[in-house]
């Protein structure tokens, strides 16, 4: 791969998925895109770059973008953001939405489904308190390939043993040969859809809680700022945004501020989170889908 070809691939990926690759990441491009070359019968990365420039093969474009995404995840990853959901975010959101009895949650980088299913398990545990509530659990990812796996809800022996307590495995999974499948009711709670965070996502509506963990780290600063600004626009005034441990809003957007109490939690700047819950009118979450986007599935009365 020549420097010119590498620079082309870097800028191509930057435009398509926001992935910001430094010059030292040449090895990553070579190791991830080598298999894509073989799949499309191309001799090398130079031939791949030429083919992408002609811009005719959308399957190839998708394969290149998806091959460069990092999908590592596990159930209850880092634990703290999930303890926070169970102990703080969910009870507080339920108190604030007691009259509407509606909650909207979004996992913005859902990968193979472990994060949304972890939340689904905790919502399931809270089901007695959520009787009569309507909960939207929307999960999006750039990669349609990982979303297929997420929808299938089928995990290896290794995947179900990282982060998932064995009691939860017994309670929520069934054995399918060597693998484990998350139960149908939990699969049905999650509304999966492909989404590139670089594109507009306001059609998804407004959310009370957004998990957007370990994706911004791959973007450059202007892209991070842009995505964070639009996440803020999709977050209720009293909403909660969770970022990954290596991510922050500081220096990237003025619209969000770190929570003084909880690491990884961000609220709207000058927002309503700190004010008395009853003192403020609640925004109506837009539920009418934009043209061409199928309506979001809602889980009613867990």
């Amino acid at each position: 791969m020549t420097d010119i070809e590498f620079d082309f691939l870097r800028s191509y990926l930057k435009t398509r998925s926001g992935l910001a690759l430094s010059a030292e990441k040449r090895y990553l491009v070579e190791s991830r895109l080598g298999p894509v070359c073989r799949r499309f019968n191309l001799a090398d990365l130079g031939a791949l770059a030429t083919a992408l420039k002609s811009g005719r093969d959308t399957a190839m474009e998708r394969a290149v973008v998806e091959a460069m995404t990092t999908n590592e995840t596990f159930f209850f990853r880092d634990r703290v953001p999930f303890d926070l959901f169970r102990d703080v975010l969910l009870p507080e959101a339920m108190a604030r939405r007691a009259s509407q009895r509606r909650l909207r949650i979004w996992c913005a980088a859902a990968s193979t489904g472990q994060e949304p299913y972890s939340l689904a398990m905790m919502l399931n545990d809270a089901a007695p308190r959520l009787a009569g509530w309507s909960v939207d659990l929307v999960a999006t990812d750039l990669s349609t390939e990982v979303l297929e796996k997420a929808k299938a809800g089928l995990y290896s022996h290794f995947e179900v043993q990282r982060g998932l307590p064995v009691q939860a495995l017994i309670k929520h999974f069934e054995q399918v040969g060597e693998q484990w499948r998350i139960s149908a009711p939990l699969r049905q709670m999650v509304d999966y859809r492909p989404l590139n965070l670089l594109h507009p996502f306001d059609a998804l509506g407004s959310f009370d809680i957004i998990y957007c963990r370990n994706v911004l780290i791959y973007f450059d600063a202007p892209t991070k700022g842009d995505v964070l600004g639009r996440l803020s626009a999709s977050l209720a005034p009293d909403g909660a945004l969770l970022l990954g441990a290596a991510e922050t809003v500081i220096g990237l957007t003025d619209r969000l501020v770190p929570s003084p109490q909880h690491r990884g939690l961000y609220n709207q700047a000058g927002g309503a989170a700190a004010r008395a819950p009853a003192a403020r009118p609640l925004p109506a979450a837009p539920i009418l889908p934009a043209a061409g986007i199928p309506p979001l599935r809602r889980v009613v009365g867990l």
């Binding site: 596990f74 022996h157 290794f158 043993q161 990282r162 982060g163 307590p165 064995v166 495995l169």
Partner: peptide, 15 residues
């Protein structure tokens, strides 16, 4: 807790 063999370091640490 319950570890299903084969296991690796990550699983033991997590459990």
């Amino acid at each position: 807790e319950y570890i299903m063999k084969p296991f690796d370091r990550d699983i033991v640490t997590a459990k």
